[in-house]
Simulated scan of single mutants.
Amino acid sequence: MVKDQDNKVIKVRSLADFKWGKAYLFEPYTPEEYIEKQLGVEFEDPSNIRSRDDIYLMVFLNEDKVVQYAELKRQRTSFSIGEKDYLSPSEDVLKIER
C-alpha cells in the first residue's frame, strides 16, 4: 500500500482482523516510558522503537489492554493520524505523507 504512490491513506480497520477500540501511532525513537504514558498501561516494546528510525509503531488496545501491535516500515514516507491522540474503528484513517 505504501509503495503505491497513489495511496494517500490507509484504512486501518480494513487491515486489522481482530477486535480493537483504540490504535496509537508512535514515531521513530519514541521512548517506552512515553508509550506507556500514552497507552495508560504497561507495555514492553518488542520493536525497540526507541533506537530505530526505520519504522513507526502502531499499538492496538481493546478494553484498556494491548491486543496487537504492528511495525510500519517507513519506506521513505511518514505516517500521521493528524491532531488525534489515537484512531478508533470509526475514525481509522492513517495518512501517508511523502
Rank of each mutant, 00 (worst) to 15 (best):
Met1Tyr: 10
Met1Ala: 09
Val2Gln: 14
Val2Phe: 15
Lys3Pro: 00
Asp4Gln: 07
Asp4Ser: 12
Gln5Phe: 15
Gln5Ser: 15
Asp6Phe: 11
Asp6Tyr: 13
Asp6Arg: 13
Asn7Ser: 09
Lys8Trp: 12
Lys8Asp: 08
Val9Thr: 08
Val9Gly: 01
Ile10Gln: 02
Lys11Val: 07
Lys11Arg: 13
Lys11Ser: 08
Lys11Phe: 13
Val12Asn: 05
Arg13Trp: 10
Ser14Gln: 10
Ser14Pro: 00
Ser14Gly: 01
Ala16Thr: 04
Ala16Ile: 05
Ala16Arg: 03
Phe18Ile: 06
Phe18Pro: 00
Trp20Asn: 10
Trp20His: 09
Trp20Cys: 11
Gly21Arg: 12
Ala23Glu: 01
Ala23Asn: 02
Ala23Arg: 06
Ala23Leu: 05
Ala23Gly: 03
Tyr24His: 05
Tyr24Val: 02
Tyr24Thr: 01
Leu25Gln: 07
Glu27Trp: 12
Glu27Cys: 04
Glu27Asn: 07
Pro28Ile: 03
Tyr29Arg: 11
Tyr29Asn: 05
Thr30Ser: 07
Thr30Gly: 02
Thr30Gln: 06
Pro31Ala: 12
Pro31Arg: 05
Glu32Asp: 01
Glu32Cys: 02
Glu33Ile: 12
Tyr34Val: 04
Tyr34Cys: 00
Tyr34Ser: 02
Ile35Val: 03
Ile35Leu: 02
Ile35Asn: 01
Ile35His: 03
Glu36Lys: 09
Glu36Gly: 01
Lys37Gln: 11
Gln38Asn: 03
Gln38Phe: 04
Leu39Glu: 04
Gly40Ile: 04
Gly40Met: 08
Phe43Val: 00
Phe43Lys: 00
Glu44Thr: 13
Glu44Gly: 09
Asp45Leu: 06
Asp45Pro: 00
Pro46Trp: 13
Pro46Leu: 10
Pro46Met: 13
Ser47Pro: 00
Ser47Trp: 11
Asn48Glu: 09
Asn48Pro: 00
Asn48Ser: 11
Ile49Trp: 04
Ile49Phe: 07
Ser51Asp: 06
Ser51Ala: 08
Asp53Thr: 02
Asp53Met: 04
Asp53Gly: 11
Asp53Arg: 06
Asp54Gly: 04
Asp54Ile: 05
Leu57Asn: 00
Leu57Val: 01
Met58Asp: 01
Met58Tyr: 07
Val59His: 03
Phe60Asp: 01
Phe60Lys: 02
Phe60Gly: 02
Leu61Asn: 09
Leu61Phe: 11
Asn62Leu: 14
Asp64Trp: 10
Asp64Glu: 15
Lys65Tyr: 07
Val66Ser: 02
Val66Gln: 01
Val67Ser: 07
Val67Phe: 07
Val67Gly: 07
Tyr69Val: 03
Leu72Ser: 04
Lys73Ile: 14
Arg74Glu: 03
Arg74Pro: 00
Arg74Ser: 04
Gln75Phe: 13
Gln75Met: 10
Gln75Pro: 00
Thr77Asn: 14
Ser78Arg: 15
Ser78Tyr: 15
Ser78Ile: 13
Phe79Lys: 02
Ser80Phe: 12
Ile81Gln: 06
Ile81Ser: 06
Glu83Val: 10
Glu83Arg: 14
Lys84Gln: 11
Tyr86Thr: 05
Leu87Asn: 06
Leu87Phe: 12
Ser88Asn: 10
Pro89Cys: 08
Glu91Ala: 13
Glu91Ser: 14
Asp92Asn: 15
Asp92His: 14
Asp92Gly: 10
Asp92Trp: 14
Val93Ile: 15
Val93Lys: 13
Val93Arg: 13
Val93Tyr: 12
Leu94Ser: 04
Lys95Gln: 14
Lys95Asn: 12
Ile96Tyr: 07
Arg98Met: 11
Arg98Gln: 12
Arg98Pro: 00
